[in-house]
Structure formats: structure tokens, C-alpha cells
């Protein structure tokens, strides 16, 4: 019962998202009203690591924790792209991950959204020009929102997803 008493002593630790730097989140194209209404409150997110250093992954995993709590917005992380509505892509797309990324995008049922997280996903970051990199994410699959940062804070990533949904 020590666990339960500790839970009650700790209380709810979820924080409200602070307003952030508007430069970090880039909306590439406006999401149509139908998708916005559809995903506005229930969104399945599939995270795709297209060759990242895992820095962004660590920040994304913070989203599921009690402090940032993405679930309160109706987001839940899913195991299969077939269950997903939004792909959260990280990393410069390495040559080995190019085809898997395309296949993941293809496996996701439409309507679907893509949010590219991190500098690598936007501009290939420090790996730009490397022989192992095929290109940034928008050169492989269509992207709706970029979230800059190396790595971006979890609050920025949340803001990026909310921007994709038209809920800023």
C-alpha cells in the first residue's frame, strides 16, 4: 500500500503547456476542415525513427509521461501505422530507412497527417550532405508540420501536433 499512499501524496503533476517560440513550429500546409474535425479530439500517433540519434525520441517519450501527458488532448501512441492518424517522423532519412518510411506512410489509412520533429527531419541537421542520408523527410513523404530544435522540447512537439490539428 506504500505505492497507493505515494500516489495520493504526489497528486496530479500535469502542467499546462507554456506559450513557446512561434518560430519553432512551421505549418507547411493547412489541414482541411474535415481532418481537423475528425482528429481534433482523438488522434493515433505512430512514431517513426528514420535514422535519428534518438535525442528526439527521448523528448517524445516524455510526452507520454505525467508532466506533459499527451493523452489529455486525446492523443495516444499506437504500435501499428494501420491504427495511426499521424506519423511523427524523426531523423534525417537515411538511405536504409527511405523505403521503410515510405511503406509506413503507405500503410497508414487516410486521412493522415505527418509531423516532422527535429532539425534533422527538417534540414538534415548536422548530417546534411552525408553519404548515408537520402534527404529530409519532406523529400520522401508529404509533411504537414515541422518542429525545429535539436532536440525540440516536448512542449514544442505537442504544440506542433496541435498546430497540425488546427488547435493552437
Amino acid at each position: 500500500m506504500g505505492l497507493l499512499s505515494k500516489i495520493f501524496r504526489t497528486g496530479i503533476v500535469t502542467e499546462a503547456i507554456p506559450p513557446g517560440d512561434p518560430q519553432i513550429v512551421h505549418l507547411v500546409r493547412e489541414v482541411d476542415r474535415r481532418s481537423r474535425r475528425l482528429f481534433g479530439r482523438a488522434l493515433g500517433i505512430r512514431e517513426v525513427d528514420a535514422g535519428s540519434c534518438n535525442g528526439c525520441e527521448i523528448e517524445i517519450s516524455g510526452l507520454m509521461g505525467p508532466v506533459y501527458d499527451s493523452e489529455r488532448f486525446g492523443f495516444h501512441f499506437v504500435a501499428s501505422p494501420r491504427h495511426a492518424d499521424l506519423l511523427l517522423v524523426t531523423g534525417p532519412v537515411t538511405r536504409n530507412m527511405e523505403v521503410p518510411l515510405r511503406k509506413t506512410y503507405e500503410a497508414t489509412p487516410s486521412p493522415k497527417l505527418v509531423v516532422a520533429v527535429g532539425d534533422c527531419a527538417h534540414t538534415c541537421g548536422v548530417f546534411k550532405g552525408s553519404y548515408a542520408v537520402a534527404g529530409s523527410v519532406d523529400q520522401i513523404i508529404p509533411v504537414d508540420v515541422f518542429v525545429d530544435g535539436c532536440p525540440p522540447e516536448p512542449a514544442d512537439i505537442l504544440r506542433g501536433i496541435l498546430t497540425a490539428l488546427g488547435r493552437s
Binding site: 504526489t10 500535469t14 482523438a42 501527458d69 493523452e71 489529455r72 497508414t108 489509412p109
Partner: peptide, 24 residues
């Protein structure tokens, strides 16, 4: 788990969304 979590009616919203999505 000391977090706010989704509202109790979240599964209804998920169902509504799923019925509107394409099947692959």
C-alpha cells in the same frame, strides 16, 4: 499515474474517428 488523462468519453471519440477512416 498522477496525470490528467483523457476524458471518460474518449473511446466514443475514437470510435467516431475510426468509422470515418479508410480501411487498408
Amino acid at each position: 499515474q498522477n496525470r490528467r488523462g483523457a476524458p471518460v468519453w474518449q473511446p466514443y471519440l475514437e470510435l467516431r474517428k475510426l468509422f470515418a477512416k479508410e480501411v487498408v
